[in-house]
Design a protein around this nucleic acid. Structure first.
Length: 828
RNA sequence: GCCCUCAUAGUCCAAUCGGUAGAGACAGCCGACUUAAAAUCGGUCCAGUGUGGGUUCGAGUCCCACUGGGGGCACCA
């Protein structure tokens, strides 16, 4: 903390020395701890918490460097900042490691967490470590279980038997969101279907609100994320239509259609072959055929089933439906091209105007009735269904109407005849949350022979995982390893006291992560899930930062849970994250880093070679935060060079701390204040890369002033150096802190006061006005910034060059003047 | 097929309201310092904004069409 007199011997910038000096300082000083009684306005900046898979990698380095910028800036602007950290510490990799190493998943998990925590401290994230939470701690998952029971009590958690996505490798079910192109998101194994009794959250009840509340997020969340969620929810409007079924006791079949105007074109009905409905409808003579068909489907992978050029297959069920309007007989078929879990699992076949139906009709030799004239070739001969707009034909009750009017009319007719109604349908399915694995929060339900499903009473929570299961005992067997632990499974029924069994499934880890941002407010509370009053003060999260890979899963689930909590009156807001920033990926050579490509870059090595600050600065400077960073295109050594250059400016300053800058070199002061003003706007706009460019500009200007201007003693140089240290503290905390100390200011720079810029210094003494003739630049003028339009026009027209153009091009038709920057002379 | 998004020097990227295409950096080249090199300092080269139209006095910026890259959804009736 020397005064660095001009005569003192200069040190060189040594990032290792600086890191070793300041990391312990921040920890002892409690620089980033949150005081709950702090009266200043609150700001909550949150990074998506990491999964503890080994040590931190380049992706973490980018995400957390970016997230730290708004957190640190809010601090400098005088906010009481909450910037917490935790771990998403349940999940399959821990279990796989445990099986391999004959250990308990907790060992691998908590050891990795410690490694990551140490790396985070080295990486100097401005975090309050007392907020730290782990979703695998009983003190946390007790409340995950409590949350489950709240949903259960509201009828939002239920069990149903239905065909589900099954990953044969992970030996567990998968949510729809976890199936990517027919394969398991985690391991890439083709997913198959299996009928299982599973737990679901009724997220579909919230489909409308999840969609409509996106209006609040417009502009504050990336467009593509909103688009993806909209896509995923997939609202489509149309009608439900009921078709009577021939036979004594047959229930009518209800279908959903977006094209009720094509009703007269229905020539057959199709039900999903894997749905119960098919079994109910089939006649005895066809039963065996249907069973054979259904058996065959089980072996077909999702990828094959979805391939477009597959042949249409199906079984006639031997039964007929009755057309709702014409009374015509319609054969009922079962096929795998109809999905059991969308709509009602049945469709009306309109081969003329739906490609899938047409292909099916051609394969099964069914009639094709054209009822919309689109001016295209007859689908029956072309093989191409005409799905576009057109005029209704062969449709007595809406003959001649255009598509939209025909749809409206068709719904009126259906409602009048009691045969159907307007209907909205969603692509979104209920959230399948049970997993047949060990390392997750057990579902707090007890199954009793007499009482059925019984929730675990509140005072018996948490239902903890056994701590003595390890290695092979955890191997996947198609049901949870917990099922084989009889001591754990056997329990007295809380309702009747008789012997009963625990539910042996565990919850999807997305349940854990759907509410952790609320828990950060009081991570150690054993009394309640979170303190509502304080949560309402801190939340919604003002800036949420994380990767776009969570655009649907985590973010949709969190939005859903927040709405449920709102309905339970536990929070007073309906959206958890007011603003979202998706940082890009870190690539190397144009591609994601991966072992198989051998292009991985080790974060630890980068930190050892260039220092923490240089790596952080590189991440931020490389590109706008939402763009990818290609490590092959950037220069951490260049960043290190710049940091040394900035650091030397602070070292060169010879004026004393507290020196009044007002008499300092005006030119440098103008730069400094311009930079402060610009940087504020850039930070608001999340253009963090440009912020760094501005500090570089400031450092360059200060260097010039020291070497060939007013010299190191000038107060403007100190002002520039202090400003640079403050801005740099957002991205390069070690260097900034050391500069701040060298400048004789009290640490920490992280809690310093952001400088006010002086408006007067932003005003230029003269400004360069451009003079155009017909929009082309022809001359320039140095003018006062407050010149009048008339004066500027007069000066511009008087310029000899401009006169010459006027003479050549003909008379002046119009002069556009935008004082003080531009004159455009329009000649004819 | 539908939807979102991007395209500016060799490279990564800037450019409030439509108003001088360049703030910053990497790489390159030249110079100063040095016995030499490194480090440092200074200087310098480099595009008319993917293509074609349109609006305008004026377009990187707004509109339309197309091309190319990235991403999402897709047998969803």
């Amino acid at each position: 903390m020397s005064e660095t007199p001009a005569t003192a011997e200069k040190q060189t910038y040594d990032f290792r020395r600086i890191e070793e000096r300041w990391q312990p300082f921040w920890e002892q000083d409690g620089t980033f701890e949150v005081d709950p009684d702090d009266p200043r306005p609150k700001k909550y900046v949150c990074d998506m918490f990491p999964y503890p898979s080994g040590d931190l990698h380049m992706g973490h380095a980018e995400a957390f460097a970016i997230g730290d910028v708004p957190a640190r800036y809010a601090r400098l602007r005088g906010y009481n900042v909450l910037h917490p950290i935790g771990w998403d510490s349940f999940g399959l990799p821990a279990e796989n490691a445990a099986i391999k190493n004959n250990a308990h998943p907790a060992e691998w998990t908590y050891s990795n967490i410690e490694t990551q925590a140490a790396s985070f401290k080295r990486y100097a994230i401005s975090t309050d470590w007392s907020t730290r939470l782990h979703t695998s701690d009983p003190v946390y998952y007790r409340w995950t279980q409590w949350l489950f029971l709240q949903l259960y009590n509201r009828g939002l958690a239920y069990r149903k038997n239905s065909p589900v996505n099954w990953c044969p490798s992970c030996q567990t079910v998968l949510a729809n969101e976890q199936v990517v192109e027919g394969a398991c998101e985690r391991c890439g194994t083709p997913v198959t279907k299996r009928a299982l009794n599973q737990w679901y959250f009724k997220i579909t009840d919230y489909a409308d609100r999840l969609l409509d509340d996106m209006d609040q997020l417009q502009g504050a969340w990336p467009d593509r994320v909103l688009a993806m969620q909209r896509n995923w929810i997939g609202r489509s409007t149309g009608a439900s239509v009921s078709f009577a079924v021939e036979g004594d006791d047959a229930e009518p079949i209800s279908v959903f259609t977006t094209r009720p105007d094509t009703l007269y074109g229905v020539t057959f009905m199709v039900v999903a072959a894997d749905a119960d409905l098919a079994v109910q409808l089939v006649t005895e003579t066809k039963r065996a055929e249907l069973e054979t068909y259904r058996e065959g489907l089980k072996t077909v992978s999702e990828i094959d089933r979805q391939s477009a050029d597959r042949k249409r297959t199906g079984v006639f069920l031997g039964r007929y439906a009755v057309h709702a309007l014409t009374g015509e007989k319609l054969p009922i078929w079962a096929s795998d091209y109809v999905l059991a879990d969308y709509g009602t699992g049945a469709v009306m076949g309109v081969p003329a105007h739906d490609q899938r139906d047409l292909e099916f009709a051609r394969a099964m030799d069914l009639n094709v009735n054209v009822v919309v004239d689109t001016g295209e070739e007859d689908p029956a001969t072309s093989g191409v269904a005409t799905a576009g707009d057109g005029i209704a034909i062969n449709s007595p009750k809406w003959q001649g109407l255009a598509k939209d009017e025909a749809i409206t009319r068709a719904i009126e007719v259906l409602e009048h005849d009691d045969a159907g109604t307007a209907k909205v349908n969603y692509r979104l399915r209920d959230w399948l949350l049970s997993r047949q694995r060990f390392w997750g929060a057990p579902i707090p339900i007890i199954h009793c022979r007499d009482c059925g499903e019984v929730p675990v009473p509140d005072d018996q929570l948490p239902v903890t995982l056994p701590t003595d299961m390890r290695g092979e005992q955890l191997a996947p067997k198609g049901q949870s390893p917990l099922a084989s632990n009889e001591d754990w499974v056997s329990v007295d029924c809380p309702a009747c006291g008789k012997p009963a069994t625990r539910d042996t499934d565990t919850m999807d880890t997305f349940v854990d992560s759907s509410w952790y941002y609320l828990r950060y407010i009081a991570p150690h509370s054993t009394e309640e899930i979170f303190p509502t009053e304080q949560v309402n003060q801190w939340l919604p999260v003002e800036q949420y930062v994380g990767g776009v890979e969570h655009a649907i899963l985590h973010l949709l689930y969190s939005r859903f849970i927040t709405k449920v909590l709102h309905d339970l009156e536990l929070v007073n807001f309906t959206e958890p994250f007011s603003a979202l920033l998706n940082q890009g990926q870190v690539l190397n050579g144009g591609r994601a880093m991966s072992k198989s490509l051998g292009n991985g870059v080790d974060l630890g090595e980068q930190l050892d070679t260039y220092g923490v600050d240089a790596v952080r600065l590189t991440m931020i400077f490389a590109s706008p935060p939402e763009d990818d960073v290609d490590w092959a295109d950037v220069s951490p050594s260049g960043s290190a060079k710049f940091l040394a250059r900035a650091w030397r400016i602070a070292q060169d300053v010879t004026s004393r701390a507290g020196t009044d800058p007002s008499q300092g070199a005006q030119q440098l002061r103008r730069v400094t204040h311009r930079v402060i003003a610009d940087v504020q706007g850039l930070l608001e706009d999340q253009k963090y890369n440009v912020v760094i460019a501005r500090v570089m500009e400031l450092i360059n200007a200060a260097r010039k002033e020291i070497d060939s201007g007013a010299g190191p003693a000038d107060p403007a140089v100190r002002e520039a150096a202090e400003t640079a240290a403050q801005i740099l503290s957002l991205a390069a905390p070690y260097t900034a802190e050391d500069m701040w100390a060298m400048l004789g200011r009290q640490s920490s720079v992280a809690n310093s006061v952001w400088p006010d810029y002086d408006e007067a210094l932003l005003v230029q003494e003269t400004i360069t006005a451009v003079v155009q003739v017909k929009g082309k630049l022809r001359d320039k003028l140095e003018v006062s910034p407050d010149i009048s339009e008339a004066e500027l026009e007069a000066q511009a027209l008087a310029l000899p060059k401009i006169q010459k153009y006027i003479d050549d091009d003909g008379p002046v038709r119009k002069v556009i003047v935008k004082a003080p920057k531009l004159v455009n002379v329009v000649t004819s």
